[in-house]
């Protein structure tokens, strides 16, 4: 076969491939815009009726047809923040252990086990949370917490085993694999020469980790954390099972609350009235905006960390 023919068909294939790949990339963008469009369109009724008041009202009364997003937004943010506070130290510890101090033989199995956690469907976490975790902490942890830490309002409330704090715990377990595997990859990107230089000037392992590895990987770690946050914000089934599903705002974290995704999972099927449905869709829109902003921030930070291979270092 003459070479030129090959080239010709190659060009045609190239063009076709370019077209096809452009089409798929475009399709994703189109889909995203369509989702935003539909969310706005469907929530228009509620946006028109409640306006910005929707964001700050804490009434959620399907009987009267009066809705406000504050309890759900509050619950979404608070449960996710609790999850981050618990998950970040554990995940970073994991990642440091796996990249810096773990003996070769157990690196693989532990890393695999953590990633396996990520593959457990969230409904399993929810059921485990409801049937095992909630009764356990209701009996053993929460009464103790109320007695010893109850002077801080955050640790008060009803010891039911379900509520904002337990939801945060379950979310933490769910996002640990995400944060630790991204953090591990970021730590692996730290150039060995930097670490070796640290050791060469007599730094201990502790000093190398704290003064070389972590500062170098700082924005990558932030990205990992926000990625975890993004996942926690949108998590539905596990939270629905254990958050307590009460449309109320309470500073006492043992009390039941709700989140946007839990409210949607609970109420969508039986929402008959237009304004009810529209308000639920607007909740969805709010969640979309929150997660979108958070994930965009994460992408930005991870991108910044990987584009500065040698300029970062210990500052």
């Amino acid at each position: 076969m003459p070479i030129s023919d090959g080239h010709k068909s190659g060009h045609a294939a190239d063009a076709a491939f370019k077209g096809v790949s452009f089409f798929f990339a475009f399709a994703v963008m189109a889909l995203l815009s369509a989702i935003i469009f539909v969310l706005i369109k469907e929530s228009w009724l509620s946006i028109g009726k409640f306006g910005l008041g929707f964001l700050v009202s804490s009434t959620w009364d399907p009987v009267q047809g009066v809705f406000g997003a504050l309890p759900a937004v509050w619950g979404t943010v608070v449960s996710s923040v609790i999850a981050i506070i618990i998950a970040v130290p554990i995940s970073l510890g994991n990642a440091i252990f796996l990249t810096e101090t773990a003996p070769k033989g157990i690196k693989g199995p532990i890393g695999a086990a953590i990633e396996l956690l990520a593959s457990i469907p969230s409904i399993i976490y929810g059921m485990w949370g409801l049937f095992v975790f909630a009764p356990f902490i209701a009996e053993n942890v929460e009464p103790f917490m109320i007695e010893r830490l109850g002077f801080i309002p955050l640790f008060r409330g009803a010891p039911l085993g379900v509520g904002m704090l337990p939801a945060g715990f379950i979310l933490a377990i769910m996002i640990i694999p995400f944060i630790s595997s991204v953090a591990r990859d970021v730590f692996l990107m730290v150039p060995p020469i930097l670490k070796e230089s640290g050791y060469a000037v007599g730094a201990t392992k502790w000093e190398v980790i704290w003064k070389v590895v972590i500062p170098f990987a700082k924005s990558g770690i932030m990205g990992a954390v926000i990625l975890g946050l993004g996942r926690a914000l949108g998590e539905t089934m596990a939270v629905t099972f254990i958050i307590g599903n009460s449309q109320r705002i309470s500073l006492e974290l043992l009390n039941p609350g709700t989140s946007i995704s839990a409210a949607l999972a609970n109420e969508f099927t039986e929402a008959v009235e237009d304004i009810y449905l529209s308000s639920l869709v607007e909740l969805g829109l709010i969640l979309f905006v929150i997660t979108f902003v958070v994930l965009a921030a994460a992408k930005l930070m991870i991108a910044r960390s990987s584009y500065r291979p040698y300029s970062g270092g210990a500052r």
Partner: peptide
């Protein structure tokens, strides 16, 4: 409160479904 398939509960925790 009134009545409906979902209401603004004055108190309590919510379980999903009869089984919840």
């Amino acid at each position: 409160v009134g009545f409906g398939t979902a209401v603004d509960w004055p108190t309590g925790v919510g379980g999903k479904g009869n089984e919840g």
